[in-house]
Amino acid sequence: MHVRTEGRTWTGTGLRFSGLGHYFPRNRRFHDGEVTVGGRTYPPGAADELGVRSLHVADEDETLEFMAVQAARAALEDAGHDASDADLVVLANWTDRQWIPEIAPGVATALGAHGALAFDVCGACTGFVHGVQTAAAMLNGHPGWRRAVVVAADRFTRRARPGTRGQLVFGDAAGAVVLEKGDPDDPSGLLDSVLDCDSTEADTVAARPPEGWLRPKPELIDLAVRSSLKVADNVLTRNGLKTSDIDWLVPHPGNNAIHAGVRDGLDLPREKFLTNFADRGNTGCASIPIALSEFSRSGVLSPGDLVLSTAVGSGWYYGGLLYRL
């Protein structure tokens, strides 16, 4: 069954990303030469072939809640706001799901956002898109609310089955944005969002008890490329845009084969395809916000840039965001 969730055009709502933040765990593993991890030794060049030169691994004290709080604080500071100014805290996460309580209330408490409604969303690696679209709808529908903190955090290293090459690709991180109501006439801001689901492909990627290790099927790469291209075409077409009109594609990165398929399918110049995959790995739902934060701080991304972000995730979910920084 294919379920289509109609996207929302946010042009004219004044919604914008007023702050960006990220957190990378202290332990950074470099893939120089021979790499031994999880009881398996990989020969020199194995990591180069996969495209990940380094990634971060969270220590035991760097819990998902801890990482999320650090990223959220950085985003609030970037926006020039105190946590008490937040009306909503949305946490996207799939690697550390638990029964109750949800993790977001603990994040809100640690931040000092005591008046905020706080809850979790999932959507696997589309979690950031899911969180932003949910927050946008709630802010737009609630006349008294002005500001949401959307955090995406995953400890992806814990979902890599020992002995698989996922150990050289999956990294840990947290990223956050402050989504805020501003001037409706401001041309910058969140322009469009979409999140779709094709449940017939739900088992293409799975991570089930008791170990919770990721188990992808061989058709994952082709499905991920097709879904990413479908999202991009949908968002660009309904906004009257061509690929050449966007300044950057900042996607959720999967692996080098998916990247190449998306670039070729969009006829996108390599220099417009922007990820930190080589230095941070695949960080799950945190991938897009950490890239936005890191590249904004380094000056690669600039105010006014038109950005398209696409993401795919187990479910099978595929979605995207169009926004001007």
Rank of each mutant, 00 (worst) to 15 (best):
H142K: 12
V151R: 04
D192C: 09
T11A: 14
A311F: 11
R263C: 09
K242E: 12
A286Q: 06
T95Q: 04
F17E: 02
L268R: 11
T275F: 05
R263L: 13
A176N: 03
S54D: 07
I288V: 15
D185Q: 15
P303Y: 11
T63P: 04
T134E: 02
D305E: 12
V37T: 13
V225E: 01
R297H: 09
A79I: 04
V149F: 02
L301N: 10
L214P: 00
A176V: 01
D172M: 10
T275G: 06
L179R: 06
L15M: 05
R238A: 06
V37G: 00
L190E: 06
G313E: 05
A113I: 01
P209K: 15
H56W: 10
R28K: 13
G80T: 07
R40Y: 03
H130D: 05
K181A: 11
S287F: 03
T164G: 04
A108V: 01
C197A: 13
S302M: 14
P218K: 10
Q98I: 14
R53W: 00
W94S: 13
I103M: 12
A113F: 02
Q133G: 10
H22Q: 09
D198L: 08
V132H: 08
A92F: 06
D85N: 10
A137D: 05
A207P: 04
G123F: 07
P187D: 13
G12N: 09
A108W: 05
L195V: 10
A176S: 10
G106Q: 08
G212T: 08
T310M: 14
G320F: 07
E211C: 09
D192K: 06
E211D: 15
D264C: 10
S298E: 12
Y318H: 15
E60T: 15
V169L: 07
G189F: 07
W213D: 12
H56V: 04
C125K: 01
I288S: 01
P303K: 14
D279W: 12
V169Q: 03
M138I: 11
T237N: 14
R147A: 06
A174D: 06
S293D: 14
K272Y: 12
R165Y: 01
A136Q: 00
G182K: 12
L236P: 03
S84Y: 02
L306I: 11
D87P: 02
A136E: 02
I288W: 00
G315L: 01
G212N: 10
H130L: 09
A153S: 08
R155D: 03
W10M: 10
A46F: 00
G45A: 00
V132P: 04
A232C: 10
W10C: 08
K242F: 08
K272V: 14
D196W: 09
F277I: 05
A224D: 02
A83D: 03
R280A: 10
L88W: 02
F30K: 08
A92C: 07
E6N: 10
V35T: 14
L179V: 12
H252K: 11
G131A: 08
A286W: 07
E60I: 11
L20T: 11
R73K: 10
S228W: 13
A71S: 05
G320K: 06
H22T: 01
R29F: 06
S84M: 07
E77H: 09
S287P: 01
